[in-house]
């Protein structure tokens, strides 16, 4: 089967596997995303379960980032981007025009591909979210939030002596963990991660993967990754995207051992991607 046949099949088929779960944290139905006139996501139905880590994989340009950014309306910042469909966070319609994105983004946090700490101190980076949302009424309370967040991100021991040093002075891996600490400081319910390890070395990557496993006890996590091993190591379920379509969703083990769809198999065995 060559690529053009894959493509034809991708357009014809409906998602295989089990995209829907009971008692979902987030549920998306019939999501279409357009950049100006160009469609980037075609009719995606997907549920994300409570305290589950869902990995999104697929070839470059297939729309993983685009889909992920719909989940906390980060796509609003792109003028030409238009989102259709129903996206729910529990009982809240995410794209309800009357919804304020500020509390939404406090509930659904995001970690970006490139570490992007603010050019401020480590402390101020982590304290920024709690400050703008008014989560701490006293200084000691804020100190506590900063410490627990840094501990959860596995960064506390490395930075506790230089909390007021610049966040940009950390190594790439430390910066990414700082960004994770900054995100969990506002205690979101869902954390979206877009290739959080793509700029990191294997050791820093291992630390972050460990961290994801720990965080999944309390948070729901959606992670985009290009590393099949990473998806296999950290996630419970895996969603495979292809040319803007959601091809297959299944338990991670099944996806990597016995995928239902030919395209998924072709991708994970490295025949294209």
């Amino acid at each position: 089967m060559n690529i053009s046949e894959h493509t034809a099949q991708a357009h014809a088929d409906k998602t295989v596997g089990e995209p829907l779960v009971k008692n979902a944290k987030m549920s998306m139905r019939g999501v279409n995303v357009f950049y100006a006139d160009k469609q980037a996501i075609y009719g995606v139905d997907l549920d994300i379960g409570r305290n589950e880590v869902i990995a999104m994989i697929g070839p470059s340009g297939c729309g993983k980032s685009t889909f992920l950014r719909c989940l906390n309306r980060m796509n609003d910042t792109i003028d030409i981007c238009r989102v259709e469909g129903k996206l729910m966070l529990e009982n809240q319609d995410i794209y309800d025009p009357s919804l304020d994105v500020v509390p939404l983004r406090a509930r659904v946090g995001m970690v970006f591909q490139k570490p992007n700490p603010f050019p401020k101190s480590i402390y101020d980076n982590v304290a920024y979210g709690p400050r703008i949302h008014g989560l701490a009424s006293r200084r000691t309370e804020l100190d506590e939030i900063v410490e627990t967040s840094l501990r959860k991100a596995g960064l506390w021991d490395e930075v506790k002596d230089r909390l007021h040093g610049p966040g940009t002075g950390l190594s790439g891996g430390q910066q990414q963990r700082l960004c994770i600490a900054r995100t969990i400081a506002v205690s979101p319910e869902v954390i979206l991660m877009d290739e959080p390890c793509s700029a990191l070395d294997p050791i820093a990557t291992a630390k972050i993967e460990e961290l994801i496993a720990e965080l999944s006890e309390n948070y729901t996590i959606a992670i985009v990754t290009h590393s099949m091993q990473q998806a296999a190591r950290v996630s419970h379920r895996t969603a495979y995207f292809h040319l803007g379509k959601l091809i297959e969703v299944n338990d991670t083990e099944k996806v990597f051992t016995n995928p239902d769809h030919d395209l998924t198999e072709a991708y994970i065995t490295g025949r294209f991607g």
């Binding site: 906390n72 980060m74 910042t77 994105v101 500020v102 509390p103 939404l104 983004r105 406090a106 946090g109 995001m110 970006f112 490139k114 992007n116 700490p117 603010f118 050019p119 920024y128 979210g129 703008i132 949302h133 960004c179 900054r182 995100t183 506002v186």
Partner: peptide, 15 residues
């Protein structure tokens, strides 16, 4: 000003 800084702030729920 790099867009990544804006995204970081917006992603945390800054108005």
């Amino acid at each position: 000003v790099p867009p990544s800084i804006r995204e970081a702030a917006l992603g945390l729920g800054a108005s």
